[in-house]
């Protein structure tokens, strides 16, 4: 860990101004906001992040969870993962989010980790997290050690020849299926960014993971109002029973009427370089009768562009089984 300056912000404006002094907002940002610290502090200890200044935003009034005027839900950036997971409205109307959060990390980590921090969670690729190895995400142009290396946990969708790092979050998979929007306050004013447009696939610049610029501070995440009779589910598959990142996961938000699927949202975790929305699967599902054969076709469609690396070929089939099972559970009559 390198020496850094620690400051506390007392207002959102002040935090934005502090953040705006950073030359970049992505990898190696020289100013970093800290909330729960569950990702950032680890990476600083590993020398993978080396900010000169750490701006503590825990004092900002951004922890509230409240219903919005249109009947949706606004989740403050600093709402802890455990608070969101156990919130009665989340449990009632957005079960997929509660299930996703509770499947991730450990109770201790969930008590610290925040909604916005989780949105910005970094990959668990071992080569990213060890400075002894080449990594384009960490050191652009240095090469990708994961390709041809230990990549059992890594991505099969959205990869590039420069990066196959997987996005490890569970929360973000659920938020993708829920079509959340992310409210950002920055030097140029306020923006509301659909989660679908928030993450960047690695391409040739895997060091840039999202659209945030210096000074941009996530202040909240908004969920649209729940459509009537919609059900949702999150299924996470991994080697052990708890406290492990997903090999594959699926978030489903679905409305079935008389056996026919009216609306489906499908997002995948553990297999994509970003939280992975599968419009291909949704198209197969919508307008058709819910049955296992249809679910399997949707799963095939979701994975048709998968490009496995040397060790993670099994994830293609695993993700398909995950989708089929998650759809089966979420469409079972109550």
């Amino acid at each position: 860990m390198q020496t850094f300056e620690y400051r506390q912000s007392t207002s959102v404006d002040q935090a934005v101004q502090a953040g705006a002094r950073s030359k970049r907002a992505q990898q190696y940002a020289d100013v970093r906001f800290i909330a729960g610290g569950t990702t950032l502090v680890d990476l600083m200890k590993l020398d993978v992040e080396r900010p000169n200044q750490v701006v503590d935003i825990n004092g900002l009034p951004l922890a509230q969870i409240k219903t919005s005027a249109d009947g949706g839900l606004v989740i403050g950036a600093l709402a802890r993962n455990s608070a969101v997971a156990h919130h009665p409205v989340v449990q009632r109307d957005y079960a997929v989010l509660s299930l996703a959060l509770l499947s991730g990390a450990s109770p201790q980590l969930r008590n610290m980790a925040t909604t916005a921090g989780n949105l910005l969670q970094r990959t668990r690729c071992v080569y990213f997290r060890d400075t002894a190895h080449a990594c384009n995400k960490r050191e652009p142009g240095s090469g990708c050690s994961a390709i041809g290396g230990h990549n059992r946990m890594l991505a099969i969708l959205g990869t590039s020849k420069d990066c196959i790092a997987s996005n490890p979050s569970d929360q973000n998979v659920a938020l993708t299926a829920l079509e959340a929007t992310i409210q950002v306050q920055g030097v140029k004013g306020n923006q509301s960014i659909p989660i679908q447009d928030f993450y960047l696939k690695p391409g040739s610049t895997p060091n840039s993971e999202n659209v945030l610029e210096p000074g941009d501070l996530i202040v909240s995440v908004t969920l649209p109002p729940p459509a009537p009779d919609t059900r949702s589910h999150y299924l996470k598959l991994r080697d052990r029973a708890a406290y492990e990142f997903a090999l594959a996961s699926a978030a489903i938000v679905i409305k079935v009427n008389g056996g026919r699927i009216e609306r489906a949202r499908v997002a995948l975790g553990g297999v994509g370089t970003v939280p992975w929305r599968s419009r291909e699967a949704e198209q197969v599902l919508e307008g058709h009768t819910a049955d296992v054969a249809l679910f399997r076709r949707a799963a095939e469609a979701a994975l048709k562009d998968a490009q496995p690396a040397s060790e993670n070929g099994f994830k293609v089939e695993l993700a398909k089984r995950c989708i089929v099972q998650a759809l089966t559970v979420s469409t079972q009559s109550a």
């Binding site: 668990r124 071992v126 080569y127 997290r129 060890d130 052990r240 029973a241 708890a242 406290y243 492990e244």
Partner: peptide, 17 residues
């Protein structure tokens, strides 16, 4: 390099296992 030299990548049973 023993590349999975950490507790996220070298997994041991949790109490749930």
């Amino acid at each position: 390099h023993p590349i999975n030299d950490n507790f996220a990548d070298y997994i041991v049973p949790t109490i749930a296992d």
